[in-house]
Design a binder for these strands. Sequence first.
DNA 1: TTGGGGGTTAGAATCATTCTAATTATCACT
DNA 2: AGTGATAATTAGAATGATTCTAACCCCCAA
Lengths: 143, 143
Amino acid sequence: MASSPRTAPPSGALNRRLADSGLRSTPQRELIYDVLLRKRDHPTADEVFVRVKTEMPTISLATVYNGLETLVQCDLVRAVNFERGPTRYCPNLRPHAHFHDERSGATHDIDLPPALIEHVKAILPPEYRAEAVEISFRGSTSR
Amino acid sequence: MASSPRTAPPSGALNRRLADSGLRSTPQRELIYDVLLRKRDHPTADEVFVRVKTEMPTISLATVYNGLETLVQCDLVRAVNFERGPTRYCPNLRPHAHFHDERSGATHDIDLPPALIEHVKAILPPEYRAEAVEISFRGSTSR
DNA sequence: TTGGGGGTTAGAATCATTCTAATTATCACT
DNA sequence: AGTGATAATTAGAATGATTCTAACCCCCAA
């Protein structure tokens, strides 16, 4: 493929994080990340694949899975699991919980106050060292 | 009549709960439930299948899945999911979180103080009605 | 004693995800 | 610009957990 000069600077955060991990920036990874940033509705890998394919028809599903995993490793994206459903992806890096609305199927972010995170971690006996805490709600919204 | 701390209903609860749901008590369902009560190590459906099979060699994996689902519906057992791993089953009915020890692969129950559950629910905007809250930790224990 | 409705079973099917092996792109160094 | 070495992408096969299907079984009521 002939290389063309860049017309726009690459996404700063993505390139920096990739480089920090010894990984390369690629059009596929940039597009996957961009798609996540553009519509923050917690899409599944399949949904990301569909969105990305409209702009890059040759991309493969395996690359979408690989790319999403890469973004998760770089701490640019969070993988969100709910019960047995497919993994969903979320570019919100603030500490937050997830609310799964059973009526609409939508997932909403709920900001977590730092004090609450501390409260939650405080219930662990001292020999338990938590690297991560996940909080998720299931229910419905009245609007 | 102060009771010893109890994490599951007394034996016999199975029959009552099944009857309440218009379901029948069967040797398979009783054995599946008994196996869960006997060793509370959050087994997967496959692990339950292996344990149950030593006492009832003709039971099928499908029946184990069906039976576990039935117990979950009757609120005698909780299904526990951690990331993409297979569902695990837990007869502890007290409100509790789960701690997943990455070193050993074990899952531990962490009792949740009622006040903490309230604190956690309190972060939801008023139009969100939560039917369930899940809290899970990932990390390791120093012993 | 018969009929209907759960319940069980073995195996097929499904679904999300991961793996494999081959191809392609990019980087570091001339 | 050329050349390997290394990383990334790709299509499709394979995997693993779970669910479905269709036949059979068992119990209770009429």
